[in-house]
Amino acid sequence: MNVKKQGRRSAEDAEQTKSDILEAAAELFCELGFERVSLRNISDKAGVSHSLIRHHFGSKEEIWHAISDELHEFIVRYVAVVYQNMSKTVPANVQLFEFTKRMLAYMLVFKRPVQLMADAVRQEDALLDYFIGSSDDIESFVEGLVSAHNAAFPEAHIRMWDLKWQIVMYAHAAASLTPFLKETWSDETDDLNTCLLRHFMLFEQTMAARLKIDNCYRSIPDSVEELVYELPDSVTSEE
C-alpha cells in the first residue's frame, strides 16, 4: 500500500472512530442525561481509550456540541427534502400543515433531537443556548411559511413559536411518557406504533382545525413512519 492510500485509510479510520464516539455519547446522553455521563462512560461504550476521546474532542462539552451540530445538519437536510416534496400549488395553509405533520412525524420516529433538547434544558444554559442558536436557518424557513399563511389567512393567524411549541410538546410527550402513551389506548391496542399513530392524529386534528384545512387535504396514514421522508445517501440520527 502506498503512502497516499495509507493516509486515506488512516483518515477514514479516524472519522469512523469519531463517529463511534459520537454515537455512543448520544445514546448515553439520551439515556442518562449529560450530567451523569463521564468521558470514561463514553470510552467504555464506544470501545476506545479515554485518551483517544480527548484527542478527538477534548471534553464532554465538545462532544455534546458535535452531536448537536450533526443533528442540526441532518434536520436542515430533512427540512430541505420536506420542502422539495411539498406541493407549491396548494394554499399556504396547506403547505404549513404539511410541513408541521412531516416534522412531527420525524421527531416521533427519531426521538434523539427532542431528548437532547429536553436534557439541555436541565443542564447549564450554555448547552440549551448552543442547541437553539444553531437553528437560525431553519427558523428563517419556518418564518417564511408562517408569514405566507398569515398573509393569506389573517383570520387563522398563527405565531411561529406557538407552532414550534406544539410540535416540541407532542414530540417530547411521546418520547418521555411512553408508558402513559401505551396506557391511553390500551383498550384498543397493545402495539406502540399504533399508539404513536393515535397520538399523531390528535396533533393532526388540532392543526387542521387551527389552520382551517379542508378535508380533501387530510389523510389518515397507516403508520407515522410512512410520513417520514428518507434522505438519499445519508445516515439517520438514530437506529
Rank of each mutant, 00 (worst) to 15 (best):
residue 67 I to S: 01
residue 137 D to L: 14
residue 168 V to D: 04
residue 87 S to H: 09
residue 136 D to L: 07
residue 119 D to G: 05
residue 75 I to E: 04
residue 48 V to G: 02
residue 68 S to M: 08
residue 97 F to L: 04
residue 148 A to N: 11
residue 111 K to R: 13
residue 75 I to A: 05
residue 66 A to C: 03
residue 91 P to R: 05
residue 107 M to Q: 00
residue 80 A to K: 06
residue 95 Q to Y: 03
residue 172 H to Q: 11
residue 173 A to P: 02
residue 68 S to I: 02
residue 44 D to A: 15
residue 130 Y to G: 00
residue 135 S to N: 11
residue 77 R to Y: 09
residue 161 W to E: 12
residue 102 R to T: 03
residue 157 H to G: 08
residue 128 L to S: 01
residue 47 G to S: 14
residue 140 S to F: 07
residue 163 L to N: 03
residue 73 E to F: 05
residue 83 Y to C: 14
residue 131 F to A: 01
residue 65 H to Y: 12
residue 99 F to E: 03
residue 44 D to N: 15
residue 157 H to M: 09
residue 154 P to Y: 10
residue 79 V to E: 11
residue 63 I to M: 04
residue 107 M to E: 01
residue 142 V to H: 02
residue 69 D to L: 06
residue 49 S to C: 08
residue 107 M to W: 00
residue 174 A to V: 07
residue 64 W to L: 03
residue 147 S to R: 12
residue 91 P to M: 05
residue 75 I to D: 09
residue 148 A to L: 11
residue 147 S to L: 12
residue 176 S to D: 10
residue 97 F to Y: 13
residue 135 S to D: 11
residue 46 A to F: 03
residue 107 M to N: 01
residue 120 A to R: 02
residue 174 A to N: 08
residue 169 M to I: 02
residue 86 M to D: 10
residue 105 A to C: 14
residue 164 K to T: 04
residue 126 A to Y: 12
residue 154 P to W: 12
residue 139 E to M: 15
residue 178 T to R: 02
residue 105 A to Q: 02
residue 123 Q to G: 12
residue 119 D to H: 05
residue 65 H to L: 00
residue 77 R to T: 14
residue 76 V to A: 11
residue 86 M to Q: 13
residue 163 L to D: 00
residue 71 L to F: 09
residue 136 D to C: 07
residue 112 R to V: 07
residue 114 V to N: 03
residue 175 A to H: 00
residue 58 G to C: 06
residue 152 A to H: 13
residue 74 F to Y: 15
residue 143 E to N: 10
residue 61 E to M: 07
residue 111 K to T: 12
residue 127 L to E: 01
residue 51 S to D: 09
residue 93 N to M: 07
residue 49 S to Q: 13
residue 141 F to P: 04
residue 160 M to I: 15
residue 162 D to C: 08
residue 113 P to L: 00
residue 153 F to W: 10
residue 96 L to W: 02
residue 71 L to Y: 08
residue 98 E to V: 10
residue 164 K to V: 06
residue 91 P to F: 12
residue 79 V to I: 15
residue 53 I to V: 15
residue 66 A to P: 01
residue 154 P to V: 10
residue 112 R to Q: 12
residue 169 M to G: 04
residue 58 G to R: 05
residue 126 A to D: 09
residue 72 H to E: 06
residue 82 V to P: 01
residue 102 R to F: 04
residue 104 L to S: 03
residue 93 N to Y: 10
residue 130 Y to S: 08
residue 89 T to W: 09
residue 68 S to E: 04
residue 159 R to Y: 10
residue 96 L to F: 12
residue 117 M to W: 06
residue 119 D to A: 09
residue 137 D to E: 15
residue 175 A to Q: 01
residue 101 K to H: 09
residue 166 Q to I: 03
residue 85 N to A: 15
residue 103 M to F: 06
residue 151 A to P: 08
residue 61 E to T: 12
residue 166 Q to P: 00
residue 175 A to S: 13
residue 74 F to A: 07
residue 50 H to E: 07
residue 175 A to W: 03
residue 131 F to D: 03
residue 123 Q to D: 13
residue 117 M to Y: 06
residue 123 Q to F: 09
residue 59 S to M: 03
residue 45 K to C: 06
residue 131 F to T: 01
residue 137 D to T: 14
residue 147 S to D: 14
